[in-house]
Each structure stands twice: as C-alpha cells, then as structure tokens.
Design a protein around this nucleic acid. Structure first.
Length: 443
DNA sequence: GACTCACGC
DNA sequence: GCGTGAGTC
C-alpha cells in the first residue's frame, strides 16, 4: 500500500513517505525484473519504440492548406442549405447539433416511433435510428446528411486547419502507453481516425500529400487479427483458409456457417459472415451481432452456434482464455504482454460479461499490435540507412512511409518484407503495399 | 464533466 | 473490443 503525501505534509511525513514508497517501488521493480517476458518486451519493443515515435512526430506529414480551405467553404455552404431544408420540414428552428432538441422535434412534435433508447434512457437519434426512420420520413434523411457533413467539417476540416504548423505539416503525438491492449494512440490531432469509408472521407485523406519529388509507401496487414486468432487457437480449418493468399476469408466462413458450396455464397451471406468474423475478434455475443446486422437475437445466436460448430477449436480457445483470465485476473499476448481485467471479479452480470469480452479481445488485439511494433522497429532500422526515407504514421495495421523516388523500389521491399517477417505464426502474414502521392484511395 | 454521437482499426 | 474529438447542456 502506498502512503500518501499532500502540500501540507511536514518534513518528517515526507521522509516517511519516501522511505515506505521506495520499498514499495523497489519491490515492484524486482517483480518486473523477475518476469523475464515483461522485461524482454520492454527492452526489445517498447523502449526502442520511444525514439521511433519521437522521430515520426518531429518529421510530421505535409498537408495541402488550399485543399482544406476549399473544402471548408464548400461544406459550410452545403450545411446552410441542409439546415434550411430541415427547418422547413420541422416547421421550427432548432439547434441541429443538439440531439436533445432533435429528439424533442422527432418524438414530441412529429410523433416518430421511438426505435431505440440511449444507455441513459433518452430516445436515441443515432445513425441506425435515422436510417430506419428514413424509410418513412424525409427529415431523418436530411439529418443524416447534415451529421455526416458536420462531423467532417468540424473534426477533419476546420478542426485540422489550426493544427497545421509553419512548416506546412501536421505533427501528431503518439502515446505508447495510452491503451490497455498495447496499441498506440494518437492525439492533437488524432491521425489514426482520419475518415476512410466514404467519398467525402477520401477528400480528407487527399489533404495529406507527399513532399515534392517524394512518394508515400502505404502498407497494410491483411486480416492480421484473424491470423493471430488462427495461430492462437490452432483451428485447422481457419489455418488452412488463411494459408492460401488468394482465399477470401469471409466467403469461406459464409460457406461453412451456411453449409453451402463456396460458389453458392451470396453477397448477403458473405456480408453476414464478415460481421461474424468482425464480432468474433471483439468477443461479441448474440446481442451485439444482432445489433450490427439488424437481425433478431435468435438469428444472431444461430449464426454464432453454427460458427463455433464449424470452427470448434476457436470456441475452445476463447473459453480457455476467459477461464485462465478468471484465475489469473489478467490475460497475456503471444509475447507475454499483460492486461489486468478487474471486471472479471465483478458480481454484476453485465460488468462481468464485458470482462469476458475484454478477455477474448485483448490477446488478439494485443498480439497484433506487438507484431506491428516489431515490424516498425525493423523497418526503422533499415530506413535509417536510406537517405530521404522516413516512417510517418502507423494506423494499427498500416504503415505510411515517405521516400524519394530514387529509393522507391528498395523502400517498398523493406517495408513489405519486414512487416511480413516480423513474427512467424502458423499462418503467413500478408501485406498489401501501394504507392501514392496522397493518403486518398481514388480508384 | 456527463452525455451523445461519430470517425478509425 | 480499443481509442480521440466535437458539440451540447
């Protein structure tokens, strides 16, 4: 137990504080040093990462301010129009940014049906609700569009412009110890959640450009978390699917859970299987799956049962992880990185269930992030001998490197090879690498 | 500071 | 599942 100290403590109290807490801290350091795995993770991974992240932050990434201000004006205009359309339909002016005021309009003035409530019990107006209401009403469609544009404008356009420094770049800050699983986080600004899904999102990505006569090398791991799960669970079917570079894991999963030939897998079956795979690595249960697929809990639970029948060792592995975590109070990654899970000792059913999901997810997410860190350290070492080549960003399963065109081929090879060989699992690690002058995916 | 919502992996 | 951030109240 740590003793405490405050501003009014006497000299004697302060001396006592240091005497007792040095003992405590020394004991902790001893424990840490005896755990050779944790010590090894620190020496081999986290300590080397510090300098690499520092270099990435200092290097920064160039943005086009002209593209930013152009889109800012365009969005501002579109938002004004959407706002007047909304007021016309609601026959009333209100703050479109206020979910509270919006729900007044929806559920008091217009008598829309309440589809879902927020955790606090208020009638929800989130995107899934707006989509459902859009089938019968016009206003929710307008709100959906307004929310999309306003999110992009406030966070990624007008929010990003003040972050541009005098060198014309954005310098994020990476936290090495910001997450419970071992992942990095990024803040001020967060460059790990730049939009990627929509067309408008790609216009944000297009702000980020390589320097003159340089190119981005962008490499991402293919299905790294499912590969980690295949390795950890040793499920033979899963392993054999992922050994084949050309196989489509979601279609293969669909064929198995729906008990059909691969050639008979419909796009809807694939969509459902993809969501099952997605939910699997998050420890999702029938409740969560039914929500994300918009199906009944019964149907969701049948999908999960069918999945675990087809991939029995995955079921066994996940149950084993939870049991072990309940005994140990923590989970470990493949390399031994620990995550303590207090929720597992809760007597509250819901808290405990959340603890189980955490236990299932942490070794998968944590192992994947260990692999990426190893890759970054090796890439960084190799790139230090290449003039004009720098690591710029890491977005969990993706690395963004900048290089002058002369070294392009060499850099591509370094990044791809070091990522694929970072750790040897029972399944190969595949990396997709592309070259571009901006972060946008304009196909 | 709690809450709601929304962006990423 | 893991994060960060904008905005309201």
């Amino acid at each position: 137990n740590m003793t405490t100290i405050d501003k009014k403590s006497s000299v004697d109290e302060i001396i006592l504080f240091f005497q007792s807490n040095f003992k405590f801290i020394n004991k902790k350091i001893e424990e840490f040093n005896k755990n050779t795995k944790l010590l090894q993770i620190y020496k081999d991974i986290d300590y080397p990462m510090l300098e690499i992240l520092s270099e990435m932050e200092i290097e920064g990434i160039t943005v086009s301010k002209s593209k930013m201000s152009k889109l800012s004006k365009k969005l501002a205009k579109q938002l004004v129009d959407l706002k007047s359309e909304a007021f016309l339909l609601s026959k009333k002016e209100f703050n479109l940014n206020s979910p509270k005021q919006l729900s007044e309009i929806f559920y008091n003035d217009l008598d829309y049906p309440i589809i879902k409530k927020t955790p606090k019990g208020a009638p929800s107006t989130d995107a899934s609700v707006l989509e459902e209401l859009s089938k019968d009403y016009e206003l929710p469609k307008i709100i959906l569009k307004y929310r999309e544009l306003e999110k992009i404008r406030s966070t990624y356009v007008d929010g990003l412009i003040p972050e541009v420094t005098d060198d014309g770049k954005i310098h994020t800050h990476f936290n090495l110890f910001g997450t419970a699983t071992g992942r990095l986080s990024s803040e001020k600004p967060n460059l790990q959640n730049i939009p990627n899904k929509t067309e408008l999102g790609q216009q944000i990505r297009d702000f980020f450009i390589s320097e003159p006569s340089k190119k981005f090398v962008i490499s991402d791991y293919s299905q790294i978390e499912l590969r980690v799960l295949a390795h950890l669970s040793k499920d033979s079917d899963m392993v054999s699917i992922l050994k084949d570079k050309d196989s489509d894991i979601h279609s293969e999963t669909a064929a198995r859970i729906f008990n059909t030939k691969l050639s008979d897998v419909s796009s809807d079956m694939r969509r459902k299987a993809k969501e099952v795979n997605f939910g699997l690595i998050y420890g999702m249960e029938a409740f969560g799956l039914s929500k994300s697929l918009n199906i009944s809990q019964k149907e969701a639970s049948e999908l999960i049962t069918s999945y675990f029948n087809q991939f029995p060792k995955i079921k066994g592995f996940l149950d084993g992880v939870v049991n072990q975590a309940e005994q140990d109070t923590y989970t470990t990654t493949l390399l031994g990185r620990k995550r303590y899970i207090r929720e597992l000792s809760s007597s509250n059913f819901q808290v405990k269930a959340a603890g189980k999901r955490i236990a299932m997810n942490a070794p998968i997410q944590g192992t994947a992030s260990d692999i990426m860190k190893i890759a970054m350290i090796r890439v960084s070492n190799k790139l230090s001998k290449v003039d004009g080549a720098n690591l710029l960003l890491q977005i969990h399963d993706e690395l963004i490197v900048e290089t002058d065109e002369f070294h392009l081929k060499k850099v591509k090879e370094i990044v791809t090879k070091e990522m694929e060989s970072a750790l040897t699992l029972d399944v190969p690690l595949f990396v997709n690498t592309k070259v571009s002058e901006s972060l946008a995916n304009f196909n």
